[in-house]
Design a binder for these strands. Structure first.
Lengths: 223, 223
DNA sequence: ACCTGAACACCGTTCAAGT
DNA sequence: ACCTGAACACCGTTCAAGT
């Protein structure tokens, strides 16, 4: 009987199952809760079994990240490059909202997985096809990705939800001395008074970049 | 004699000394090498002594981050807002190059320290003084910071140094199948052939943002 | 008031032993 | 070929005991 149950485990456990369980654990409990021991428990197995399928925890994280990248919408080479870049950016933000642990790890990843290479290839392809030089395509991709990563990481770590901004501002206002922080005080007061809603826009920065790129491309600075 | 040495320790150890030693350790050995035990050894003291001056490791990290923020150039309220924002951005990038562990922690920090509030106040002040509404100043600051954080984190984690790009490209080229990754292959080949240098520019994305903001401000969309 | 050693509840990972 | 338990070298932090 113990033979059968072990045989069952052998059939079920593999790198993909481990990766999926790890992502689910990191999504629901946070990345700091992802330990080899907890993951093993979730899988109904001993911590050490995992090492038969992945080299170590870093290897597991790489597999998890490559899966996240697979959720990015792959750019079409042909077509409206601005719209294609916008669709990719939005899909990346959505993937990061589903997997909030991913951006800091993904941006720090040294070796690139299969999916990352596919994403980079298609992104460069779209821009080059639109008339960008290799150098300009590289700069453009870098600037767009900076915004996607920087914006979503700020967004993910913002301490209050959009529908609580006004209440939070009213709560913090007394702690922001008008004499010490006049503009922060003014901005917080404007929020309390409903003069603006405090919601930043992903598309605001993205449009600044895309419109600037379009303008430079049209005037021949990038081609 | 043991009395004197303990009295000496009491005089020397304080939150500021601990913070400085922690920053030095993180700068030189990496943030993952910063443990309470190693930090204590560096300070010639027991790990537990540290807890007499900081609440816990998170508290220590907050103190470290507030010090990093103090190295940002504080925006002048009056003056050329574009130039002021550019100076702040460059000083932030330089601070992050000195303290590469800081950006992911700083962008994730929930509670803001004194220096962070001063930076935010002066940044908003500069933009509001230039004619931005509260909302527009918030969007602008968010977009600029997204670029600073996103760009520097990509830069800090890029696996090769600029003067090794060409050699690295030549090394990786055979691994990038032309049929699988045509554009990545082409870009790498262009790098090997010296058609472009592969160096991305911090100012490229920053200028796109600032020029776009200036254009929208001038046309009355943000005021 | 501050420093200390022992202890607790965790980690990732190695290794020899099982089947 | 894969799973396991014990062990090692680490963590952050609590607590009672010192001065």
């Amino acid at each position: 009987m113990s033979r059968t149950s072990q045989a069952d485990k052998r059939r079920t456990l593999n790198a993909q199952k481990i990766t999926e369980a790890a992502i689910e654990l990191a999504d629901s409990q946070g990345i700091e809760a992802l330990s080899m021991r907890k993951l093993a428990t979730q899988l109904g197995v001993t911590a050490m079994s995992i090492y038969n399928h992945v080299a170590n925890k870093d290897d597991l994280l790489s597999l998890m990240l490559d899966h996240v990248v697979s959720e990015f919408e792959r750019p079409q080479i042909k077509g409206d490059w601005q719209e294609t870049m916008r669709r990719r950016a939005h899909s990346m933000r959505q993937a990061f909202l589903r997997h909030p642990w991913a951006p800091p790890l993904l941006i720090s990843t040294i070796t690139n997985g299969e999916q990352t290479m596919r994403d980079t290839d298609a992104t460069l392809g779209c821009l080059i096809n639109a008339g960008f030089t290799y150098a300009a395509a590289d700069w453009a991709r870098n600037a767009i990705d900076s915004h996607i990563y920087g914006y979503t990481m700020q967004e993910l770590n913002f301490p209050v939800e959009p529908d609580e901004y006004k209440a939070a501002a009213a709560h913090y206002l007394p702690m922001i001395e008008k004499s010490d922080f006049p503009y922060l005080h003014g901005a917080t007061l404007a929020l309390v008074n409903g003069e603006y809603d405090g919601v930043t826009q992903f598309d605001f920065g993205l449009n600044l970049l895309l419109e600037g790129l379009a303008r430079q491309l049209q005037s021949g600075q990038l081609s």
